[in-house]
Amino acid sequence: MNEPVSFKGNKDGIVLLLDSTIEFELLCQMIVQKLWQSRSFLGEHTTLIVNSGDMSLNEGQRLALKVLLQSLGHEVKYFLPEQSVSEQETTAAEPEAVEQTAHEPEEEPVHDSLSESLAGIEHYLANGALAVRKNIRSGQKVAYDGTLIVFGDVNAGAELVATGHILVLGTLRGVAHAGCQGDKNAIVYATQLCSLQLRIADMIARAPDGESTERRVPEIARIIDNYLVIEEL
């Protein structure tokens, strides 16, 4: 595999091929980068098949990826491998696999251009999403009409407000309010969810009093049956 994120075609359409060895958080950044670079090739609204190679993405990661791709204007048709490692399809099994590089004349390594195009800037994505690549500190507030993606940490005392989803690829310690205009389908995803308070639509959840341990597991918060539920991934 030469690139962490690449495109291939199979009988069902375009496959987004992901390197299984890369950390999920970094991978998400690379996906944003790659899809942004390839926007002329992909067009406005493309249905993608996500193939994570031999890495079986768990349900939460799949949901996060789905939201991420949606925010970039694309839909996920289905995921490969389907669920468990044993059922997976290898990339070699795809007969019409064609490397897509024609629209990218000079392919830089993703790592280098990533920092360049996302460094410290607010980066408007296709489908009403805002990507912020910096740490949001106490007293800072990022509000956006759409989906908000933060590549960095959000510290206690900071505030994120979005009418859509909120994805934090980093540690979320501040307050996040997703679906702030009442969208109960909005989710909050964080690589480490350590918020003392979370809000989705008109619901507020607060962390229990007492000792709070920094968790190392990605978590996703959403409303299920009128309860704000936080699930470990």
Partner: peptide, 8 residues
């Protein structure tokens, strides 16, 4: 005061 998580 340990009330940070209650602020609305």
């Amino acid at each position: 005061m340990g009330l940070e998580n209650r602020i609305v």
